[in-house]
Structures are given as structure tokens and as C-alpha cells.
């Protein structure tokens, strides 16, 4: 039954050595996060000790050159824009994966898949450029200035859509065929097979893909910077401009020194904290079994 031509098995004297090699890789991957976290803490330490973490939440505004360090509005805006983007992109992405796997003829499905994969590679600056020159003026016609929460969440949802579509597609394709045969044998309709059998079986991987996409939305920098308007405030409507934590870093990092620079690293630290909270939440929700 095994038709693989090349054999690597002579490389492994036994499972112990293989286990060690793989374990070392895993350690390396984990060490990376620790390294980055240490770096973030080191860079933000000066303001964390001299100003204290609470002022980043309680200060009235973000004017670091005038010693005001309120990050709370940006924290809120980051969470809102990412949530909106995921809410738009997740149904579209899952639907497009269903299209690929079950509805489109083989050739069309393959072409469509390549299209989606290529969309994953359109640079964020290209999305930003399109947003800035096409989408923002369009929204601005109805509700100036156009650069807004709406523009940012639409652009973000386009950017994370391929991630959701591709991972969902891959997840569906790894569902054992026997499930499908079982469903057919039971006389289930196409709709019931997809909704009740296939998607639940691929649930873990689809969830992982959506989380990955949410993380990308939270961390996206350049495109958001170009279309969101970057005013530091809690957005109260879809048409309000707003600034995310990442845009804040990208806009000001190259121009910042001293406490200003250190407080930008606090933005990064805060974002990492949100992602940490998200990941832990997802882990709790799935009852400790994050990925199957």
C-alpha cells in the first residue's frame, strides 16, 4: 500500500532520536516568543517603571510629547475593527471553501483556489493603496472624511478572507471520505451533509484558521494605517476615523525617542496581551483541547 519511493527511515536509529530532534525544534519555536516578549518588556521598561501601567489606560489622550499616554481608545478601536473584520470575513471564507470543495467543478475549483491563494499574497500596502484611492473617497461621498472604521474593517476583512478560505478548504479536504460515504448511505441531503457532518468534523481546523485570521487582523499595520484616518478616539459610529495600536507604532516609531519610543513598545506589549487573552479564551472554550 505504501508507494512512496524515497525512504528516510534509515535516518532515524530509533524513535528517541527523532523525538529529540523534533523536541529541539519545538523548543526553538517556543523560545522565539519568550525572546520577543523579553525584548518588548526591555524596551518598554523605562516608562512602565517611571509612569506605571495605569496611566496608559487612564490618561485623557495620546500626546506623548506633552506627557499624555492614554492608549485605551486605541485598544478599543483595535478590538472593534478586528471583530468586525472577522464577522465579515468568516462567513464569506467558509462559504467560499464549501464552493471549492462541493459545488464547483474540479477545474473551476482549482482556478478559484489559485485565485484565493494569490489574494493571500497581495501586499497589505496594495490593499492600502486601493483603499486610499478608491474605497475611502467612495465612503467619503456619503459621510466625510471617508477614512473610517468602516473602510478599515472592509479592507481588513478582504485581507484575512484568504486565510479563512484556504484553511477551511484544507480542513474540509482532510475530513475522511468515509464520513461522506456514511452520510450518503444515510440518505442525507447535500445541505445536511455539509452543515451537519463535514463542517463539524473539520471544526477544530476551521476554528484554528479563524483564530489565525483574527490574529492577522489584530496585527495588520500598513493597510489600516492608510485607510483608518488614525485619529485617536473611541469610534462611536462606522464612519468615525480611528487609530489601531499597530498603526500607532508604525506612524510614530521612526520619529520617537525616549519615553515616547518606550510607550510605543507598550502598545506592542498590550497587543500581545490581547492576543494572549484571545488564545487562552479559545483554549478555555474548547475545554483544553485547542487543536484536536
Amino acid at each position: 500500500m505504501i508507494s512512496s519511493k524515497s525512504s528516510f527511515s534509515f535516518l532515524w536509529r530509533n524513535d528517541k532520536i527523532l523525538g529529540r530532534v523534533l523536541w529541539a525544534s519545538a523548543c526553538l519555536s517556543t523560545a522565539l516568543l519568550i525572546l520577543i516578549a523579553m525584548f518588548l518588556v526591555k524596551e518598554s521598561w523605562p516608562v512602565l517603571t517611571s509612569i506605571g501601567i495605569t496611566r496608559f489606560i487612564t490618561d485623557a489622550g495620546w500626546y506623548p510629547l506633552e506627557k499624555l499616554f492614554g492608549l485605551a481608545p486605541m485598544l478599543g478601536a483595535t478590538v472593534i475593527v478586528s471583530t468586525l473584520a472577522v464577522l465579515i470575513a468568516a462567513p464569506l471564507g467558509i462559504a467560499s471553501a464549501i464552493f471549492c470543495s462541493f459545488i464547483a467543478p474540479r477545474r473551476i475549483a482549482q482556478a478559484y483556489r489559485s485565485l484565493i491563494a494569490l489574494l493571500a499574497g497581495i501586499p497589505s500596502v496594495a490593499y492600502g493603496l486601493w483603499g486610499l484611492t478608491v474605497l475611502v473617497p467612495l465612503i467619503g461621498q456619503f459621510q466625510p472624511p471617508g477614512a473610517s472604521l468602516l473602510a478599515a474593517s472592509l479592507i481588513l476583512s478582504l485581507m484575512i478572507l484568504p486565510t479563512i478560505a484556504l484553511t477551511t478548504d484544507a480542513a474540509i479536504s482532510t475530513v475522511p471520505k468515509s464520513y461522506l460515504q456514511g452520510a450518503t448511505a444515510l440518505g442525507l441531503t447535500r445541505e445536511a451533509t455539509i452543515i451537519k457532518v463535514i463542517l463539524p468534523a473539520a471544526r477544530a481546523s476551521i476554528g484554528a484558521g479563524i483564530l489565525l485570521a483574527a490574529a492577522r487582523a489584530l496585527g495588520e499595520t500598513m493597510a489600516v494605517l492608510m485607510v483608518a484616518g488614525n485619529v485617536v478616539q473611541f469610534p462611536t459610529s462606522l464612519f468615525d476615523p480611528m487609530r489601531t495600536l499597530t498603526a500607532n507604532m508604525a506612524l510614530e516609531m521612526a520619529y520617537a525617542t525616549g519615553d515616547h519610543r518606550a510607550s510605543l513598545f507598550v502598545s506592542g506589549l498590550m497587543l500581545t496581551a490581547i492576543v494572549m487573552a484571545l488564545a487562552t479564551l479559545a483554549w478555555r472554550l474548547s475545554g483544553g483541547r485547542v487543536h484536536g
Binding site: 500626546y63 510629547l65 486610499l132 484611492t133 471617508g146 484616518g229 488614525n230 476615523p241
Partner: peptide
């Protein structure tokens, strides 16, 4: 002017972003 007193609708980074923003918005 003091920066914290400025009531901005859009905040930009580099020069060309300013030009693109104003060219796309009749009221900017």
C-alpha cells in the same frame, strides 16, 4: 498651535498620503 488642541479628522504619515487624502476628499 498645541498638537493636543488640534481637532483632526484624518492623521497621516508620509507626504504622499496627505496628497492622496486631499485629492480624494473635496472637503479636505
Amino acid at each position: 498651535l498645541k498638537n493636543s488642541d488640534i481637532k483632526a479628522s484624518v492623521i497621516i504619515g508620509d507626504n504622499q498620503q496627505g496628497i492622496k487624502t486631499v485629492s480624494g476628499n473635496p472637503g479636505a
